[in-house]
Amino acid sequence: MKILVCMKHVPDMESKFKISTDGRWYDDGDLAWRINEYDEYAVEQAVRLKEQLGDSDITVLSIGPERVKEAMKKALAMGCDRGVHVVDDRPSDRDAMAIATIIAAFARGRNFDCIFTGMQSQDRGSGQVGLLVGEMLGLPAVSTIVDFSCIGEHNYTIKRELEGGVRAVVEVRGPALFTCQLGLNTPRYPTLPNIMKAKKKELLTVPVAELAGGGNLQDTVRLFFPEKKGGGMLLEGEVPQLADKLIAILKEKTTVLA
């Protein structure tokens, strides 16, 4: 089976973000980068599928500047077989449709049987790219999956996460695409022997111009910090005094201590 995993390199969300000088995205200097959390589940699911079926081949693709190679190495050490780095210094300038176009252009004609993506990125968060790739390639696509089983070669039983603790059970026949929700599995650590093996795996480089096509359908006007809504009270200081103040407030404003 030929498997494709798409992943994005994103800043650690605990970082202190600064707005870039053009005001349209965050400044990407001085940030710690990691694999988009949702995509780690996608990588793990791909590797599990390969382990289940044997005789499979996993390509991991990422679009971005030089640094995304770090993330791809980790995916290779987790069990992907080859990396495809689509070199693009400013992927944040592209909208979801433009990113999906690049991925679809790569996948077209390569006959992937199964494609995994994260359900969304932690930074942009549009949740569109995976589904758009599915549409562009004419593949069935199931989003927000929290349970995945492959029965036989190409039959999948999927659970989608809905609201309020409800899941929808869906069956599709491959080739197909899946967007992975948090908690789908437990992503593995790349073990030391696999890190050593990853060194020898192929990491292809493709200039983005070879795959990109069409412009954006939407434009980021600006990125900004939300205004703090007033009203909330900020308590700071020593722990015992904080506790006393909070108890006084709860007595005054709520009935729970009555």
């Binding site: 190495k73 980790k74 790349p190 073990t191 030391l192 050593m196 060194k199």
Partner: peptide
């Protein structure tokens, strides 16, 4: 090296 960085990330996450 890349391997050394990956090993650090892996061991740190585990730790």
């Amino acid at each position: 090296t890349e391997e050394q960085n990956l090993i650090r990330d892996m061991v740190r996450q585990f730790a």
